[in-house]
Design a protein around this nucleic acid. Sequence first.
DNA 1: CTTAAACTTAGATGTTTAGCTAAATATAGA
DNA 2: TCTATATTTAGCTAAACATCTAAGTTTAAG
Lengths: 101, 101
Amino acid sequence: MNSVFKALADPTRRKVLELLRQRPMSAGELSEQFPVSRPTMSAHFAVLREADLIESNKIGTSIIYQLKLSVLEDALLSFTELFGIGAGKTQPKQTREGVDE
Amino acid sequence: MNSVFKALADPTRRKVLELLRQRPMSAGELSEQFPVSRPTMSAHFAVLREADLIESNKIGTSIIYQLKLSVLEDALLSFTELFGIGAGKTQPKQTREGVDE
DNA sequence: CTTAAACTTAGATGTTTAGCTAAATATAGA
DNA sequence: TCTATATTTAGCTAAACATCTAAGTTTAAG
């Protein structure tokens, strides 16, 4: 849980997760959307991987990252429930590609 | 939201919030429960205050800290909803080891 | 006014983090 | 194998963080 919150503490990483919510993307595709170098993005991916928030699959020369929603879910839910917040009425939404907000 | 996650990224600070969930406590009372120095705890309080997660009231020589639950609630809920994670009722997940620490 | 108690601020230090450029590695395809 | 592309690793600097001890601030009480 510690590493999850640490990963979440950086806005770039949160944005990456947000992008991956829509669909899996390659490291390159993700990197394009941020004004930082690829090595820097690579380091961010490593942090997210370390927190088990994303999963990688190699396809050719690309590495496709995918959100592990259940891990994020578990961490956040157990925390919110600890505080008695989020009790509620939000039903489990299907998070498929294209769902926007 | 940035500062909230940053505050939450430290286990000591999360524990402080957890303690304050029960009742308001003085800085000294809180500090007693951690194996770090008072100045260090004071710094943690400052981070939590900066994130607007706690509120302080001076009573005599003591400073009483109090959890601002609504702020935590807002931040966490808006984030979970962003991801379509219902903070409500997700059935117990299958054993998933590696939820880090 | 002096002392004591409760906290915080200041200053120092070791560790971690984010960022960069440049080089290395891996894979696909000719 | 050679070349081009995708991504990571290496090596570095600068800033941020957690922690400590020591000193400063504020308030209460004698």
